[in-house]
Amino acid sequence: MLEQIIFSILAIAIALFSVLAVTSKRIIRSAIYLLFVLLATAGLFLMLNYHFLFAVQVTVYAGGIMVLFIMAIFLTHKPGKIVERRTNLKIISSILLSGGGLILCGYIILRNVTRVYNYLKINEINMQDIGRAMMGTEKYQFLLPFEAISLLLLACIIGAIMIARKEKNIETNDNKDLDHK
């Protein structure tokens, strides 16, 4: 009974903060709401006794990725700026595309859930195999793509810093021109 109550609280929190993250007019608040969604998802992993996924969710997503998002927001936007309202056409097309994506995902899940369940039931994967697959350098192992993504994120951070510097230089030059007039 207690597990059902905790699950319900986490599910409501995920649903509520997901909607708030998408509908908030302030971009920093949207990022904070996304952080709450990621933490509640980590709570679901903890309830399922997936301690490794819980730790990964908290450290990588709630920790690292959210810091990256907030830093990128501060470097590229004015944090207090209110996001402009979308037109009705954009809202309607977004709803239709979201509904289509939801139907497609539901179809794929329903069509493949028994196949995945039967595979996992027969061939249970242990943690050592997952670790070797994630950190190996052979065929069908993922160390090289992981490092490539980390370099891509580093390039994005450097690009955001360069863009922020150029904008600050332009603003300071404009202010100096106004002072001389």
Results as ranks from 00 to 15, higher is better:
Pro79Ala: 01
Ala160Cys: 14
Lys166Pro: 02
Ser94Ile: 02
Leu104His: 06
Lys166Ile: 06
Leu89His: 06
Ala164Trp: 10
Leu96Pro: 03
Met127Lys: 07
Asn123Pro: 04
Leu152Lys: 05
Ile170Asn: 10
Gly80Cys: 01
Glu167Met: 07
Ile158Val: 15
Leu104Val: 13
Glu167Trp: 03
Gly159Val: 00
Leu96Glu: 03
Glu167Pro: 04
Lys78His: 09
Arg86Asn: 13
Gly101Arg: 02
Met162Phe: 13
Val83Lys: 01
Ala133Ser: 11
Gly159Lys: 02
Glu124Val: 05
Ile91Asp: 03
Thr137Arg: 03
Ile157Leu: 11
Ile82Cys: 00
Pro145Gly: 04
Arg86Gly: 09
Ile157Ser: 08
Gly80Gln: 01
Ile92Lys: 02
Lys168Glu: 15
Leu144Ala: 12
Ile149Trp: 14
Ser150Ile: 06
Ile109Ala: 04
Leu102Trp: 13
Cys105Tyr: 13
Arg111Thr: 11
Asp129Gln: 13
Met134Pro: 03
Ile158Lys: 01
Lys90Ser: 14
Ala160Asp: 12
Arg115Trp: 02
Lys78Asn: 06
Ile161Val: 14
Gly131Ser: 14
Glu84Ile: 07
Leu104Glu: 09
Gln128Asp: 15
Ile108Ser: 04
Ser93Phe: 06
Met134Thr: 10
Phe146Glu: 09
Ala155Ser: 10
Gln141Glu: 15
Tyr117Lys: 08
Val116Ser: 06
Ile91Arg: 03
Asp129Asn: 12
Leu153Met: 13
Ala155Ile: 12
Val113Glu: 08
Ala148Lys: 03
